[in-house]
């Protein structure tokens, strides 16, 4: 195991998770620097939940290790949980307990507790204090979970698809709360989400999982800088096999309604200029891709290599 590293909040070191013969994660390695907002993305079943479970010490990986602040997540679970705030995908609590009772209960579990902050957030979210957990709406449960997670003044916040099932207003409130937390305390965040537009505005680093393997682990700005959609008019001379096309090295090439479309994962102006001048590629144009489009290009049905 690596020695304590002050720059990393968490580290997955060749983590493999298997359920019987099914592999959920295969030798996944990545680190989240302190103060970073890391978005772990992937389709359902890509292995996100298995990795999160390893991180929270709920599951021991078959190979490799997940470490938090340099300590093994499995063997130091109890101690590490005090430094973590977690908003699970499906927030759960004793059905009869109210938000107020839950807050009182949680306050005793952590060395430091920001009771005032919890109260303020519950008021802002308009989560009633005296309604049993089971009778709260899905959005309210998530907001309560976030308020409680932030109440422990965590050094690392783990948000497992926190916007799932939330309406637009609740989602907006959640992101604003996250902005406040980041501005105030610089908390490190590990986030999984299907709301890629929200992630795009918040994450500084992204990891993309596909079928248990990590395809991408880099700063969001870098990822977006290297992806482009190149569209060009169709003509009799197809540029498929041309040297210019090879230099462009597209990830995917498809027929669009007005011509051809290629997704390029290692875009360079020079290669594009050569391609645009090549015979057969008329009206070539390169346009940027949103994170969502990049995700689809990598993980969609006909997705390819990174």
């Amino acid at each position: 195991m690596s020695s304590h590293d002050g720059q990393k909040a968490l580290h997955f070191d060749h983590v493999s998770v298997r359920y019987g013969k099914t592999t959920a994660a295969e030798a996944v390695s990545f680190a989240v620097p302190k103060g970073s907002v890391f978005a772990l993305l992937g389709r359902n079943g890509a292995g996100k939940s298995s990795l999160i479970r390893c991180l929270l010490g709920q599951r021991r990986p078959q190979e490799g290790a997940a470490t938090i602040f340099g300590e093994d997540a499995w063997s130091n679970r109890a101690r590490l949980m005090a430094r973590l705030g977690v908003v699970p995908e499906e927030p759960d609590a004793p059905p009869d307990m109210t938000a107020r009772q839950l807050a009182a209960f949680c306050s005793r579990l952590y060395p430091s507790w920001d009771g005032k902050g919890v109260e303020t957030r519950l008021r802002r979210f308009a989560v009633p204090g005296d309604v049993p957990f089971a009778r709260l709406s899905k959005g309210q449960k998530g907001q309560l979970a976030l308020a409680l997670a932030l109440g422990s003044l965590p050094e690392l916040l783990v948000l497992d698809d926190p916007t799932l099932g939330l309406d637009v207003v609740a989602r907006k409130a959640l992101f604003e709360e996250l902005v406040d937390e980041l501005a105030e305390r610089g908390t490190t965040v590990l986030l999984t989400s299907h709301d890629l537009a929200g992630v795009e505005a918040m994450a500084d680093r992204v990891g993309i999982l596909k079928e248990g393997r990590l395809l991408v682990d880099e700063p969001l700005d870098d990822l977006k800088a290297r992806f482009r959609r190149v569209s060009f008019g169709q003509s009799d001379v197809t540029p498929h096999g041309s040297d210019a096309m090879k230099a462009l090295d597209p990830l995917a090439l498809k027929q669009a309604s007005w011509g051809m479309e290629a997704v390029v994962s290692g875009f360079s102006e020079e290669a594009f200029a050569r391609f645009a001048e090549a015979p057969g590629a008329s009206d070539a144009e390169a346009s940027p891709l949103s994170l969502e489009e990049i995700f689809i290009a990598l993980c969609g049905e006909e997705g390819g290599r990174p």
Binding site: K172, L182, A183, G198, A201, M202, A203, D204
Partner: peptide, 15 residues
């Protein structure tokens, strides 16, 4: 302020 603008644009304050 950094925080106000980040909140309004709903982007990471570090940005």
């Amino acid at each position: 302020s950094v925080r106000e603008l980040a909140r309004d644009l709903r982007i990471n304050p570090a940005t």
